[in-house]
Design a binder for these strands. Sequence first.
DNA 1: CGCATTGTCGACTGTTACAGTCGAGATATG
DNA 2: CATATCTCGACTGTAACAGTCGACAATGCG
Lengths: 153, 153
Amino acid sequence: MWISRRTDYATRALVALALEAGERPVKIHDLAARTDTPVSILEQVLPQLRSAGIVRSERGPSGGYRLNHAPEDISLERVVRILQGPLAPIACATRSEPEPCTMLEGCALNETWAEVRDATIAILERTTLATLAARSRGRWTTPVELAPRAPAG
Amino acid sequence: MWISRRTDYATRALVALALEAGERPVKIHDLAARTDTPVSILEQVLPQLRSAGIVRSERGPSGGYRLNHAPEDISLERVVRILQGPLAPIACATRSEPEPCTMLEGCALNETWAEVRDATIAILERTTLATLAARSRGRWTTPVELAPRAPAG
DNA sequence: CGCATTGTCGACTGTTACAGTCGAGATATG
DNA sequence: CATATCTCGACTGTAACAGTCGACAATGCG
């Protein structure tokens, strides 16, 4: 239970933006409606993603947000890192600055925590907004659209 | 950053107990010293592990704690579950009672969160106290003990 | 029995993270 | 100028977490 609600909201919004394919900006208000999140949260989180270069914004009437890169170039790993920091389950297993273990006898646990960290990173790295958008479209295409071809008489 | 400090302490103590091989009970005070944790925390956490059947205790002088099963029969997965609950990174991806997603368009994220959950579970399931004890011993064996054989003249 | 040693339990405090709200301001359009 | 939109920082309430403490129960020993 360690993906915060904000991260959940933010990633939902990004999927919604990916589905929009960047044709034109989407308003915070619309994103909030589609993803069922409080507007005020998106007002906090989207600027954060903006200054990290994930999305781009336009002000004024007909303004809004759009992705700043192709969906396949934005990984969940990057997004979660921006919003939550290190992906390690515990401070002694962070990749960059692992906090030294204070246990007297050799603490073998950090190896396992590092395994968890690496597995998590691997999954989130290979999952891009394109992956998610495709999955999402798959779920919402109607049976008709999905049917490859009508059985020939 | 989601393995709580308590869980860290508790797992350390269990590794220390596994190293002791259950010959005779180890006092909370000793465990605290070896694992560098506050005694008062172990006084909270060990009873919890006790009522879950992981460890067994004896009171009175020469009392203390010992493992209730062979180290290879106690997985980290079990322990973390007892101390922290579900292993899913988010409530919509818990195995037993996944909280329904409120997003209007198909939210494809839960699949990825479930992947993370499953990878985590797999790692923690195959890591037992025996694994950890062995690793820990490995770290503390002296180079002499480790050297397979002295180069023959 | 009486005492020391050990585990057991619940109440308590202080701190931090998180969720969410709000209002004042900046920028673009027309 | 008026309106629609993003921007930013301050603020509140709640819950989880870390850690402490004191009273109590059981065991072993003389």
